[in-house]
Nucleic acid binder design. Structure first.
Lengths: 210, 210
DNA sequence: AATTGTGTGTATCAAAAGATACTTATCTCA
DNA sequence: TGAGATAAGTATCTTTTGATACACACAATT
């Protein structure tokens, strides 16, 4: 856990010395293996997870379909947990570890206490609320107004923006899950994109031309 | 403004004496007439509006369509404004007064200050974030997974839950705007509902059977 | 090599939603 | 009262999306 500890100490959001001391005093560090489900819809959470390393995927489910809400990366926490833990309310989404992840876990009651005590914690919480809200608002507008092919195109271009390569190592099924539709629909649209020379399709990944 | 002042003093969220004094010291009270646009997409806000009386409608727009995000009633504030004012970010939604409304207006910089100073203010802000987030999440799930007829049915039944009567004084166009679709689609579905004896249609309002 | 699972291609059909256009009410207000 | 605005009904056509079913390719494992 030495390495994790070092990672934690580098996080700017918690660099306020008093706060850092407090966190170290009360937090547990846990590991989540790839595919592990951390949060289930309907569940009450009495802890707040902050990701140190790795990636969580938070999504909503509806019978056979699902749709992505957001990812939680290092130095971030999960809106659902925050909401659930702070307000003692059940979660309305699911969370799963996309990769081997290291997570700092805080008892729920500290959220409110530190809100008033530590400005940097206060900022962190509000920043979390705001950025998650913005993400969701954006996703909402997209789902409400844009056809799937446009959303898919935007998803793909957004994907490679953060990467050096323009290979997108994602299956059609995963794309369907993220965008809230079915695999066949994605395959159909991707084939259309290929005809338009926008992409090249391979097993297990997609290459974006541009 | 006497009446407004009295209304304000009754708001539980701000009953903490020190906070109330501060608000009265720094706030302005304004009136918005029906149809007045208070917030525009892209605009920077340096104030936080809290509704004392009346109703604001906050929505997103996309060319010819629009979709409802939420309403802001008495003792509530607008997520967009809060987000914009606190983080110095532009608004990503529009706000319009649905009726003659009375609004308390606070300078943006006080939001952060009071966050640390007044527990009840802190609670108010977080409650705002949470409830707006929940509403949006719910709307998102609906748009992603449910067909319009189901959403419309839910909208109508939710509407009369808060009313004594089962008359819904809303035009088809307004329903279309709230649900993010077009008038013709709404009219078509409502006619179907009428055949199924779920509703009776009149000019300007809808009567729900049950 | 045979088996199994996953990923992809694709055809067919059905349903949902949107676009357009035109008609008929009803209300408002000068 | 009559002109214009708003509300609603409806028919037709197209597009988008979804459901289902099946074939085939590739990979990993035994």
């Amino acid at each position: 856990m030495e390495a994790t500890l070092d990672l934690f100490k580098e996080l700017k959001s918690f660099s306020e010395p008093e706060l850092q001391k407090e966190i170290l005093k009360h937090a547990k560090f846990i590991k989540a293996s790839k595919g592990e489900i951390l949060i289930k819809e309907g569940q009450y959470l009495n802890f707040l997870p902050i990701v140190i390393k790795g990636l969580l995927r938070v999504y909503q489910q509806n019978e056979d379909r699902e749709i992505l809400l957001y990812y939680v990366g290092p130095e971030q926490t999960c809106m659902m947990s925050l909401s659930s833990a702070y307000f003692d309310y059940y979660s309305t989404a699911n969370g799963i570890a996309m990769e081997e992840s290291e997570i700092l876990v805080l008892p729920a009651h500290l959220i409110a206490e530190w809100q008033l005590k530590y400005p940097s914690w206060n900022k962190f919480i509000l920043r979390t609320f705001k950025s998650r809200y913005d993400e969701l608002l954006n996703a909402f507008g997209n789902v409400a107004f844009k056809p799937i092919n446009v959303r898919l195109k935007e998803y793909l271009t957004a994907y490679i923006k953060n990467e050096s390569s323009n290979k997108i190592p994602v299956s059609h099924q995963t794309l369907a899950n993220d965008l809230g539709t079915t695999r066949v629909v994605i395959s159909r649209i991707l084939k259309q994109f290929e005809k338009e020379k926008l992409v090249k399709l391979y097993r297990g990944y997609i290459q974006l031309n541009s």
